[in-house]
Simulated assay, not measured.
Amino acid sequence: MPLMSLKEVLADADRRHYGVGAFNVLNIEMLNAIIRAAEEEQAPVILAFAEGHQKYIAMETIAPLMLKAAREATVPVVVHYDHGRQFENIIKIMHYGFTSVMFDGSTLPYEENVRRTQEVVRIARILGVSVEAELGHVGGAEGVPGGEDDPQACYTDVNQAADFVARTGVDALAVAIGTAHGVYRTRPKLDLERLAAIKNRVGIPLVLHGGSGLRDDDFRQAIARGINKINIFTDISLAATRRIIAMLGDKDIPGSAGVVPYQGSDLLEGDFIQNASLTGYQDLMLAVTAAVKEEVKGKIRLFGSNGKVAGPAPPHARQPGRWPSL
């Protein structure tokens, strides 16, 4: 199926009031799991690679794999660069063929955020790439404790959001309404009234970062008020870790209480090895793929994107990585 831009996929989500999951990819196991989950659920999906994850794998290595998997998928797939702060990385990833980029200027002074976002949008428009930006600041760090770090201190201002969207022309806006990246130690409280007010003023699809750890009803309420893209990493990371611990008979991981030690039967029938005993790392790879796939499928259903591939027909495929004549 042709690669899809973020703007194209979120237009249908906005029109039909559902959320599309953006799942961060670190390796082949995660990549395979996300694509399989989306295909089985007949859901559009966003494959994301975060700039901060280059300490785990270089974007030059993972980008071609993500693009190949997306092109071969039977459902609409967006290939997205997440939390891009370095201008040269954003330009490079667009050149590779990613169909969407996020410029994260959320920690910059407001006018500097506007100026830099405008420059990214100007270049992206030439290449047919969608742009997401962030206003306000979603704090914390993905995959680690600290998700509760005073999110109220950096809420998105409603009037500023309207000005920002009008001046930059971004396709989607990540907003700060009480979430944070990472593992929450206390239950977050979302400012849903603020979210509804922002949606009413800006009109474009809104993005929820720091989605891992929220209650199911939090997601439903947020989607009802204008969230169309939801970023997930910590939850799939923990799902993989819990499965490994179950196989190895250990504990001490968030959510691992009550996990039954691995017996071989918890690998998905038809997808992975059967009647296996732990023989090496290869078994862990298969188990991680199974665990991530289960977690992604659950999120797809929760966000309401399952069965949504029958939306507007995708446009003809553009040629990723090809610079147009100017």
Results as ranks from 00 to 15, higher is better:
residue 168 T to M: 13
residue 193 E to F: 00
residue 159 N to M: 07
residue 199 K to N: 14
residue 4 M to P: 01
residue 315 P to C: 04
residue 142 E to K: 08
residue 285 M to T: 10
residue 232 I to S: 09
residue 311 G to N: 12
residue 74 T to E: 14
residue 99 T to R: 02
residue 219 F to P: 04
residue 110 Y to S: 08
residue 263 Q to K: 15
residue 203 G to T: 05
residue 201 R to Y: 03
residue 305 S to K: 04
residue 156 T to N: 10
residue 27 N to R: 04
residue 275 N to K: 14
residue 38 A to E: 10
residue 201 R to F: 00
residue 212 S to N: 11
residue 129 V to D: 01
residue 62 I to M: 11
residue 141 A to I: 11
residue 164 F to Q: 02
residue 165 V to D: 03
residue 102 M to F: 11
residue 270 G to K: 13
residue 114 V to I: 15
residue 2 P to A: 08
residue 46 I to C: 07
residue 27 N to H: 10
residue 185 R to M: 10
residue 246 A to S: 15
residue 43 A to F: 08
residue 211 G to P: 06
residue 281 Y to I: 13
residue 264 G to Q: 04
residue 298 G to C: 09
residue 162 A to M: 07
residue 190 L to N: 08
residue 47 L to W: 06
residue 299 K to T: 02
residue 195 L to P: 09
residue 140 G to Y: 02
residue 10 L to I: 05
residue 62 I to C: 01
residue 258 G to H: 08
residue 244 I to F: 10
residue 62 I to S: 01
residue 48 A to D: 04
residue 317 A to P: 02
residue 51 E to P: 11
residue 287 A to I: 03
residue 216 D to T: 10
residue 141 A to C: 06
residue 289 T to A: 12
residue 166 A to V: 00
residue 239 A to R: 05
residue 294 E to Q: 13
residue 153 A to R: 15
residue 3 L to W: 09
residue 202 V to A: 01
residue 185 R to T: 11
residue 314 P to G: 05
residue 293 K to Y: 00
residue 44 P to G: 10
residue 23 F to E: 03
residue 296 V to P: 00
residue 289 T to N: 06
residue 148 E to P: 00
residue 60 E to A: 12
residue 225 R to I: 06
residue 27 N to K: 05
residue 64 P to Q: 01
residue 236 I to M: 08
residue 244 I to R: 06
residue 87 F to G: 02
residue 11 A to F: 04
residue 135 L to K: 10
residue 241 T to V: 11
residue 32 N to C: 06
residue 8 E to S: 07
residue 198 I to N: 09
residue 78 V to Q: 10
residue 204 I to Y: 10
residue 311 G to H: 12
residue 267 L to T: 14
residue 146 G to D: 12
residue 261 P to M: 08
residue 214 L to G: 09
residue 3 L to I: 13
residue 121 V to L: 09
residue 247 M to K: 02
residue 138 V to D: 01
residue 249 G to A: 12
residue 230 I to Q: 02
residue 245 I to F: 14
residue 178 G to K: 02
residue 286 L to A: 14
residue 177 I to Y: 00
residue 175 V to M: 08
residue 273 I to Y: 10
residue 94 M to K: 05
residue 21 G to Q: 05
residue 103 F to Q: 03
residue 201 R to P: 00
residue 303 F to H: 03
residue 207 V to T: 10
residue 138 V to E: 03
residue 235 D to F: 01
residue 248 L to V: 12
residue 29 E to N: 15
residue 202 V to F: 05
residue 174 A to M: 07
residue 239 A to E: 08
residue 28 I to Y: 14
residue 268 L to M: 12
residue 267 L to K: 14
residue 311 G to D: 14
residue 121 V to G: 05
residue 20 V to L: 14
residue 183 V to A: 01
residue 131 V to M: 06
residue 210 G to T: 03
residue 137 H to Q: 13
residue 262 Y to R: 06
residue 150 D to P: 00
residue 105 G to M: 06
residue 242 R to M: 04
residue 115 R to K: 15
residue 24 N to A: 11
residue 62 I to F: 00
residue 71 R to T: 06
residue 27 N to A: 07
residue 54 Q to M: 15
residue 324 P to D: 11
residue 316 H to Y: 06
residue 100 S to F: 07
residue 276 A to D: 06
residue 318 R to E: 12
residue 104 D to Y: 08
